[in-house]
Amino acid sequence: MKKLSTFLLTIGLTLSIATQVAAADLFDSYRFGDSHSAFTEEKGYYDCSAQMGMMSRCLDDIPFTNESFSLALSFTDNGLKSVTLLNAYDDALFAKVMGALTQSFTLVALQGPVQLLDMVQLSNSLEDKDKILPIVNQFEDISLAQGKLSYILVERPANELLKMSNSAEAVSKSPNDTRLAELTIFADSEVGSYLYIQFSLPKLEMERKRNN
């Protein structure tokens, strides 16, 4: 299974290029707050709330990185909250997706079932950057052995985010329309491994909750 440490060696630790999307865009033409009623069966969407654990509508065969994904739209108060792309895992797909994301997103943290590895905090605490990859590699090994590993990325340039003290501050001090992407690998010896990419706008979601 290809891990981020291997991928980073390939790209030479280049983690982001600054590219901002239009305000409130989640993915493609899907926008934060879009009404649940717009995604009808007539348009090919089907109810997948039970699988996603919240009000959701799904659509099959959505292209991303020239691959076909299943798409899940999840809603809060009938307004679109997040867009998730799902596919079976393989090393080539992981590399392709991570490569696409790091063109405009910066990695800020890795999340396992038990622990968080804060990449902003880690980068600021180590003068010798060569020590980062062994730490990341060990964290990946442990998390994958436990069955789940998430890479959390923010759509801001690295030189801005690394001025922050930690990943939470990197998110909280970003503009309200800043997207967060969470690339997650599930590793299961019985049912196989798969990955998903979830796009969200956490600050807009917090603002919506405060106003409701």
Score class of each variant (00 low, 15 high):
residue 177 D to Q: 13
residue 92 A to P: 00
residue 50 A to C: 01
residue 148 K to S: 15
residue 212 N to I: 14
residue 188 D to V: 03
residue 26 L to R: 02
residue 83 V to D: 02
residue 136 V to G: 06
residue 125 S to F: 08
residue 170 A to T: 06
residue 125 S to R: 10
residue 2 K to V: 10
residue 41 E to M: 03
residue 165 S to M: 03
residue 45 Y to R: 04
residue 57 R to S: 07
residue 35 S to K: 09
residue 68 S to T: 11
residue 28 D to Y: 12
residue 142 I to R: 02
residue 34 D to C: 03
residue 14 T to E: 05
residue 212 N to M: 13
residue 8 L to H: 01
residue 173 K to N: 09
residue 192 G to K: 03
residue 158 A to S: 12
residue 165 S to A: 14
residue 108 V to T: 15
residue 113 P to R: 11
residue 8 L to F: 14
residue 112 G to I: 06
residue 24 A to E: 11
residue 77 D to Y: 10
residue 131 K to L: 15
residue 204 L to M: 08
residue 166 N to A: 01
residue 123 S to K: 13
residue 41 E to F: 03
residue 19 T to S: 08
residue 120 V to D: 00
residue 128 D to A: 12
residue 42 E to L: 13
residue 137 N to F: 09
residue 131 K to S: 12
residue 165 S to H: 04
residue 151 Y to I: 10
residue 140 E to K: 03
residue 208 R to C: 01
residue 22 A to E: 13
residue 43 K to P: 01
residue 192 G to W: 03
residue 130 D to G: 01
residue 198 Q to H: 02
residue 35 S to R: 09
residue 106 T to N: 12
residue 66 N to F: 13
residue 93 L to D: 01
residue 157 P to W: 08
residue 38 A to W: 10
residue 82 S to I: 00
residue 195 L to I: 15
residue 207 E to D: 02
residue 81 K to R: 12
residue 100 A to Q: 15
residue 19 T to Q: 09
